[in-house]
């Protein structure tokens, strides 16, 4: 970041110095709280950082041994697969339901604005709260979902079966994410000129055709951004899984994020936890760069 300062040549206007003064706090913060942890994490992933390291302050350098150990662990495949299923499952349904609701609520009717804003609530609640509520609703013997399911058939072993636990956390996460999709997509819908629909209606286009040929194409830019943001945030979800299942039962809901946490803070294998974290960064930034590419043009013109 000293580059920025170095560039301020004496010939430049006063703005250069002032700009730097205004930016200094944020630059310092980014270096200390983002730059440093990233580097520290890389270093730690190449060390055998154990319980003993805390007392002696020493952690021997082990090269790529932590990565090898992580990749050889049978949990690795489970965690990657779960991360993919969790992310894709959450996003598909969050987006689908969010879009359907956005279209529904874009029609003006009595109370539409109030109802729409009420739907924001799940998104504003602390994730731990939502997780606790769903955990209680999923309870095998006393949960409300199984009480309802018993009326129509067999209860589902939501949190006690290795097949159902992942769907359970995905459902929770969908519930949390729908409002975000709804509001952003609703904003996008509002930006589409009403005259287009009126013209199409005059041409005899039905509701589906209007959606297919007007709404969907014109919503594309917003859609792309919503999906990308969803992806980036869903990959690193931690709170929901921790509260609803804690990664269990039998690791059936362990994702890369929760696994990294378990390695570092439960097993105190900080080196391996860091290694998993770095793998997660690779995935997240991969998607992140895609997102940025979609934003690049807009940003470049705004920042100039």
């Amino acid at each position: 970041m000293t580059l920025t300062a170095g560039r301020v040549s004496p010939g430049r206007r006063r703005t250069g110095y002032a700009g730097f003064a205004f930016l200094a706090p944020v630059l310092l913060y980014v270096v200390v709280f983002f730059g440093y942890p990233l580097v520290a994490n890389l270093v730690m992933s190449a060390q055998d950082y154990t319980v003993r390291s805390f007392y002696t302050g020493q952690a021997p350098f082990v090269g790529l041994a932590n990565y090898a150990a992580v990749l050889a662990n049978p949990l690795f495949t489970t965690a990657v697969l779960n991360t993919v299923l969790f992310t894709v499952g959450s996003i598909v349904f969050q987006f689908g339901i969010g879009l359907a609701l956005a279209v529904f609520f874009s029609g003006r009717f009595l109370g539409s604005a109030t109802l729409r804003s009420l739907l924001l609530l799940p998104w504003l609640l602390p994730l731990v709260v939502s997780g606790a509520v769903w955990r209680w609703m999923f309870d095998q013997d006393h949960g409300v979902l199984n009480a309802l399911l018993r009326l129509v058939g067999a209860p589902v072993p939501w949190l006690t079966s290795t097949t159902w636990a992942l769907p359970a956390v995905i459902i929770t996460n969908i519930w949390i994410g729908v409002p975000f999709n709804l509001v952003v997509l609703h904003g996008g819908l509002r930006a589409i000129p009403a005259t287009l629909y009126e013209a199409a209606e005059l041409d005899g286009a039905g509701a589906w055709q209007r959606f297919r040929h007007i709404t969907w194409p014109l919503l594309r830019p917003v859609t792309g951004i919503v999906l990308m943001l969803g992806l980036v945030y869903t990959i690193k979800v931690f709170d929901v899984i921790m509260v609803v299942t804690g990664g269990g039962p039998a690791n059936s809901t362990q994702t890369l994020t929760t696994w990294s946490y378990a390695l570092s803070f439960r097993d105190f294998a900080f080196g391996q936890g860091a290694a998993v974290g770095n793998l997660l960064i690779l995935v997240a930034t991969g998607f992140g760069l895609l997102y940025l590419r979609s934003l690049r043009s807009t940003l470049a013109e705004a920042a100039s």
Binding site: T160, S161, T162, P249, A250, S252, R266, D267
Partner: peptide, 20 residues
Amino acid sequence: YPKVSAALAAAIQSSLTGQQ
């Protein structure tokens, strides 16, 4: 012990849930 205990606890879960 903690490492072995963690492995054993995982095995118990795996067996009780019918995963393995």
